[in-house]
Design a protein around this nucleic acid. Structure first.
Length: 428
RNA sequence: CGGGGAGUAGCGCAGCCUGGUAGCGCAUCUGUUUUGGGAACAGAGGGUCGCAGGUUCAAAUCCUGUCUCCCCGACCA
């Protein structure tokens, strides 16, 4: 992608009351734009980050037998009346009427809808288990939206739902999702901690949240530091339930003897096993050799549009964002400091093509801007590798490769670019 | 919902107390010189001061109403 052909409205200044770093940097780097309280447009740069996240989530879900679907954002109030949540959900639900005055709502979640889908088609225990997911906008009319997309009213969420034949199988599925979540966050280079949570609004009895520890986080978790070093991959559900890591709610309610360390964090994922709550209220049952059974259900959420903000909160410096390889909107930023010099331009143009052919996701700063502007934009946008081409190239065919994370700069012979790059990329 | 603030050029802000030609920085446009860390100089364009009403010879400024946005607390991915 040529910078000259890519819309990145970077800003020097942002209103003084934008206090959270990630919010500030997302606005300054031109990732998002606020439309109204708690509602944002994702501009090209921001949307690229979202896309990277979505791709990882989709791949891992599909690989694990979770079927992707897309349910509508607007739902009929009827199904919510059936579960009784039309009354109990409260003011967070945005209620709408159509021209016939039918009660509709912008879905805050989809348990009701997925249950009616299951109810219609799944008639036999032989059709279970079933797992579905979708990535879709949700609307929750938060009391106080804040911190940009961190606590928005409209937000993008991955929500998955499972149907099992009984509790035992439901727990297996729950464990599968637990592991699947760890894989997703690992692939995204986000070091989340699983913490035990009360199940709250949705009901049921088994629930975990996945938190990223950052000082500016809105949540509080209590953990035994030992779990920071654990590899959970082979854990059984029993072992997971013994982990000393809890949301503040869970920790307070249970009044544990052992005092644990408190951390501030951001919640990025939440999984529930809530059982037959909805299959019961929707009268959803399947036939078995033992008569009718109510499917045992779970739901599994990831706050997709919160992830970029959370990661920026976790990884930034005074100059801007420091993206990881997996989240960065681009893998390499090629910067030509001498856009008007024929020879240098030719070299950059050629290598831009070459990098693309080699599978790199390149943003090529070919603008007629001054070096300072190009450097500061590059640092702000936060591409992990910067290739800088300027006077050193013109004079002695040397270029620099800068690692954004620590600003470590090496100068290499221009012809050595590809091999050097492969070395550096493998290390970040 | 309670408490506190703010709406003035594309962005960030001053001016308001004490009414009298609407300002500054950045950005934009033109020209010249620059070019490895947000360039310098010279010039130019850009505003119904959130909206509505009122007071006044005169309102960005005072009064009333209204809308929007932000910040601090209790809910949530």
């Amino acid at each position: 992608m040529k910078f000259s052909n890519f819309f990145i409205p970077t800003l020097k200044e942002v209103p003084s009351d934008v206090k959270m770093k990630s919010h500030n940097l997302m606005i300054r780097s031109g990732m998002i734009r606020q439309e109204t309280t708690g509602i944002y447009s994702w501009l090209p740069l921001g949307y690229r980050v979202l896309s990277k996240i979505i791709t990882v989530i989709e791949e891992i879900h599909k690989k694990n037998g979770v079927n992707q679907i897309l349910m509508p954002t607007i739902q009929s109030a009827d199904i919510w009346k059936e579960s009784d949540r039309y009354e109990t959900y409260g003011k967070e639900m945005l209620r709408i009427n159509d021209r016939n005055n039918k009660d509709l709502l912008y879905g805050p979640t989809n348990e009701e809808m997925i249950t009616t889908i299951g109810r219609q088609y799944i008639k036999s225990y032989k059709n279970l288990p079933r797992k579905f997911f979708h990535i879709q906008s949700k609307f929750r009319d938060e009391i106080r939206p804040r911190f940009g997309v961190m606590r928005a009213r409209e937000f993008l969420m991955k929500d998955a739902y499972s149907f099992d034949i009984n509790e035992e199988n439901g727990e297996k599925t729950y464990l599968e999702f637990f592991m699947l979540y760890l894989k997703i966050f690992e692939k995204l280079n986000i070091p989340v901690i699983p913490v035990r949570a009360p199940s709250g609004e949705i009901g049921g009895n088994l629930s975990h949240e996945f938190h990223l520890i950052v000082e500016s986080g809105e949540s509080e978790i209590y953990i035994n530091d030992k779990i920071l070093d654990l590899n959970f991959n082979k854990f059984t559900l029993q072992e997971i339930l013994k982990l000393e890591s809890y949301t503040d709610d869970f920790y307070t309610k249970n009044n544990f003897e052992k005092k644990l360390k408190k951390y501030r964090s951001i919640e990025l994922g939440h999984i529930f096993l809530f059982g037959t709550k909805y299959s019961r209220s929707f009268n959803f049952h399947v036939d078995s050799d033992n008569g009718k059974i109510q499917p045992f259900m779970g739901s599994y959420g990831i706050g997709v549009s919160r992830i970029p903000a959370a990661f920026i909160e976790y990884s930034n410096d005074e100059n801007g964002i420091k993206w990881s390889k997996s989240l960065s909107p681009f893998s390499i930023q090629l910067i030509n400091l001498l856009s008007e010099d024929e020879e240098t331009k030719l070299f950059c143009d050629k290598n831009y093509e070459k990098l693309i052919k080699n599978g790199f996701d390149v943003i090529y700063d070919d603008r007629l801007e001054r070096p300072g502007k190009k450097f500061s934009d590059a640092d702000l946008i936060g591409t992990p590798i910067q290739i800088i081409c300027g006077n050193a190239y013109k004079k002695e065919k040397k270029i620099s490769v800068v690692k954004r994370s620590d600003k470590n700069e090496i100068t290499i012979d221009a012809l050595e670019l590809m091999p050097e790059l492969n070395k550096i990329i493998s290390k970040i």
